[in-house]
Nucleic acid binder design. Structure first.
Lengths: 344, 344
DNA sequence: TTGAAAGCGCTAACAA
DNA sequence: TTGTTAGCGCTTTCAA
């Protein structure tokens, strides 16, 4: 095992003090008026022998780890996976590491993760907060840590936040269905009280209300697994036969829902049933028919989040006001919402 | 900002020395014959005031971070995402943290990541190695770090390894296609020379050879993006019209391939074309028809990997021989490989 | 312009 | 059975 090089080794070899080497390594050569000649010699040697400072010691001393904690609801969900990857990429370029975790929207788990991140001394927190962690997050903020919320807001947490215009997104999708001639539009969502879910529901209701149509909402319990969810959706469709279109509140519900629908119609989607999903999914354009969806701007979300975080992490920047960034969605019209043939 | 508690605060409050507290906290109370009474009082106070040792200081002192570095080819691929999640879960239970990264199968990037992990002082490495990092990985091993390879082997790296029986998997899928009456079976793979890919190719060839059938292999360059891949696959199908079945070497190639096929047949899969994929995918059972696939035992892979790693991490265990664990795959027969109607 | 030395918070060898 | 103390490797104040 090659012995790890120390800063003292570098200093010794060049017959200078540790301090000098440290200053040079930390870009303070100019500031400390260290001769260009010496600066260069130090840098050259460091390069040559491949010296790398011990980050643990650095962090212990400075209190900074150049690490950002990223907690999303479920890293295996393509929406979050994409955002995470984009954030990681940028963070990495800026010399930050990302550690991520899935909250599974469980408040206890989230609290534990926050506490784990604190123990790891991450410099900042990016969180999709579940309900019930208000206090813990507020504490982080009070303790001076940069915190950026993503995807949803939680009443009682006052900090920077990047979300999507869920209401308009759901409104537009519903309006589109109505324009295509559908009259009995169901909304399949979860029973979670997350802000983004409530806003989608509201968008749906608002669109219907404008045309005096009746809402038909199915709330599938959040904890249901795939099979239970499937069953629930199936029985919903059985009970409410008049439905001629359905808007799913998330992409994974849409996937389950499509499975459910195909139980009734092994031939594929019935021609007279309109289907749309909030949140796009890679496979929607593979299915027959391709599925109309409300796409969320993952790239823009990731960019705003990481920019905000980097800004907050920079000690030069005064602590700014907690601002909420709301990004627009895009309705991608595919083949699952054709014009409905009206029988006179 | 609440002042962070130190071990000295605990010691002071109880009028004992720091050492005593440290011993108790590290489970050495018995060993050091510290009175049960004192032990209890210390634990109680620690609990009450919520004291948590500074991990940075601990790590600096002990040289251990209780962190495992996990590098997979692409964390947004469901196969790796699943393995990662399972590994993380177990690691977490055992008091280890996981930091993950995607290599994108790029050797330079992987080298950088390895070096980043070294800087972070991770205790062990779990890697899906790209070609060209043999030296760097060997160096890790020589330096005494536990290294477990997953999904593929690389000649020149001698360490523990968990892989899947790729050859049999591809062989079985191909054999199944032949049994169903297909005669001109294409194999769509990448040009990557990764061991698992070569083994799949070999399994395919072996099955064909036994029936004296001719192979028809398309190698799509690994660096191609989705669009380029699509185009390549499309032109392959155009050039080789006699093909009556195709086995895709990975799930993402299958997804692209299915898109390609649907360009010819907007109605869906042609009834006379058999399709199977190595590596299962959530959506395969959603598509019409559902897609036959070779499922890899993600759970078993994850379990073996983490068990191996935890074993290696335990200083009590003597360094054992580098063993390779080969796990079986499972052929899931769905509707995309129906018995071929032979026209006499 | 450079160096000596005091910690950051903890572990553990050694002493008592 | 418990306490004293020397580091782990680095940054940075203060002194020269």
């Amino acid at each position: 095992m090659k012995k790890k090089l120390l800063i003292s080794d570098i200093a010794k070899q060049l017959n200078v003090s540790i301090t000098t080497v440290s200053f040079i390594l930390n870009g303070k050569a100019k500031e400390k008026r260290i001769s260009d000649d010496l600066t260069e010699r130090v840098q050259k040697l460091v390069e040559e022998v491949g010296y790398r400072p011990n980050q643990l010691a650095q962090s212990l001393r400075t209190g900074k780890t150049r690490t950002i904690g990223l907690m999303v609801e479920d890293i295996s969900n393509p929406f979050f996976a994409n955002i995470a990857r984009l954030i990681e990429e940028r963070a990495y370029q800026e010399g930050y590491k990302i550690v991520y975790c899935s909250t599974e929207d469980d408040s206890d788990r989230t609290k534990e993760l926050i506490s784990m991140f604190r123990d790891m001394h991450v410099d900042g927190y990016i969180i999709t907060p579940p309900q019930g962690v208000e206090e813990d997050v507020e504490k982080l903020i009070k303790d001076g840590f940069p915190v950026v919320l993503v995807d949803r807001q939680v009443a009682g947490i006052h900090t920077h936040c990047v979300i999507v215009d869920n209401l308009s997104g759901a409104y537009n999708a519903t309006a589109h269905l109505m324009e295509q001639g559908y009259q009995n539009i169901a909304f399949v969502t979860t029973d979670s009280r997350q802000s983004q879910m409530l806003q989608r529901l509201e968008g749906y209701r608002k669109a219907l209300a404008e045309k005096q149509l009746e809402p038909a909402v199915l709330e599938v319990p959040y904890r249901y697994d795939a099979k239970q969810m499937l069953r629930k959706i199936v029985s919903f469709f059985e009970e409410t036969e008049s439905i001629d279109a359905v808007l799913f509140a998330t992409n994974y519900m849409a996937v389950r829902g499509l499975e459910a629908i195909s139980q009734f119609n092994p031939q594929g989607l019935p021609a007279n049933l309109g289907v749309a999903s909030y949140d796009d999914h890679d496979v929607f354009k593979l299915l027959k028919p391709t599925i109309t969806a409300v796409a969320q701007p993952t790239e823009a979300i990731a960019n705003h989040v990481i920019n905000l975080m980097l800004h907050l992490l920079n000690p030069k920047n005064k602590t700014s006001e907690a601002d909420t960034i709301v990004l627009p969605t895009q309705l991608i019209i595919r083949n699952s919402t054709p014009r409905k043939e009206v029988v006179a």
